[in-house]
């Protein structure tokens, strides 16, 4: 609770996003001053397009973290989804299979964590490994082709903007509405505050937490569909960085890793920070090796701001 900036509940939630927004603006300003080309319309569009998959995954991750959990299996779900979509079976079958697979992964996480009380880190690391294995079994090496419609979607534009950008915006708006406007959203905050108290207060806590894991897997699946469309093939390892990136973006966005406080707006800003930073480092000719190093340092810095009552996971 040390990051409380207001005694007003909704204000406190909104304000948790401020540092990320400020950081994003700062990096953007730095970019604008040092590199003239950075703010060309083309670069911005590219950036948004590139981030659409990470954004989708981060939305799901934010739900899980707000409810007091962690989902490290999202990256594997992204990989599995691209692997399934590249199986070259009937497109509808492929989509259905990908969604069902993701749903089952989410359900497994939910049951393990809620019903069997397995620690979220251990549970989702397990499913991460299992799903990674499944992705490799389906598509040992990158390749294959995805349904033609998907490629058309990735290349399609509306008013000059690529379709994935619209998809991303719609997804962000829907998730904010879900979190900020519905009972379910309020209950996500409630269980993140204290699952026991929420249950005593009339929230079906187990269902809410479980639903977050299922939604997270489905969001990861959407991210995977979007990614498969953009790379037009399957890749069993393509999602490897998504778990870390989505947690990093969520933490950067001011959501407490212990749950109960944060916002979708923050996570959007968190994704923006990661994207702008990667973009800036490219413009400034920093090697990819150093970029990795900086990303790790940023992740450490982001969570160091959230001091808890006791040290721990």
């Amino acid at each position: 609770m040390s990051i409380l900036t207001s005694a007003h509940a909704r204000q406190a939630r909104r304000r948790s996003a401020l540092p990320a927004v400020a950081l994003a603006v700062l990096i953007a300003a730095g970019l604008a001053f040092t590199t003239p080309g950075a703010f060309s319309a083309q670069n911005i569009v590219n950036l948004l397009n590139q981030q659409s998959s990470v954004m989708a995954v981060t939305l799901g991750q934010t739900l899980v973290i707000l409810a007091g959990g962690f989902d490290l299996s999202v990256g594997s779900v992204v990989s599995l989804t691209t692997a399934i979509l590249s199986l070259e079976i009937h497109p509808l079958g492929a989509f259905a299979l990908a969604l069902v697979a993701a749903f089952l992964v989410g359900l497994a996480n939910a049951v393990g964590i809620v019903r069997f009380r397995i620690h979220p880190i251990l549970m989702t690391i397990s499913t991460m490994t299992i799903v990674q294995g499944a992705a490799l079994l389906l598509r040992p090496i990158p390749g294959g082709t995805v349904p033609a419609g998907l490629v058309a979607y990735a290349n399609g534009t509306l008013f000059g903007l690529p379709l994935p950008i619209y998809a991303m915006v719609v997804l962000v708006l829907l998730t904010s509405l879900l979190l900020g406007g519905t009972r379910f959203g309020l209950h996500v905050y409630a269980v993140g505050g204290s699952p026991e108290n929420a249950a005593l207060g009339g929230v079906r806590a187990a269902r809410v937490v479980g639903a977050c894991y299922v939604l997270s897997a489905l969001f990861a699946c959407l991210g995977g569909i979007n990614l498969a469309a953009r790379i037009a093939s399957g890749d069993p390892l393509v999602g490897a960085s998504f778990a870390i990136d989505s947690v990093a973006a969520t933490a950067l966005g001011g959501t407490l890793l212990s749950g109960g406080m944060g916002s979708i707006g923050g996570s959007v800003a968190g994704v923006a920070v990661l994207a702008l930073l990667a973009n800036g480092l490219n413009f400034w000719n920093v090697s990819t090796h150093f970029q990795m190093l900086i990303k790790g340092a940023l992740l450490i810095a982001a969570v160091s701001a959230h001091r808890r009552a006791a040290p721990g996971l």
């Binding site: 509940a9 909704r10 309020l186 409630a190 026991e196 207060g201 929230v203």
Partner: peptide
Amino acid sequence: FILLPNLSVAENLFLGREPR
């Protein structure tokens, strides 16, 4: 106490039976 510290007073009062 079973109030949720991270929700507002009103959200706590209506928890589980929020008007829609």
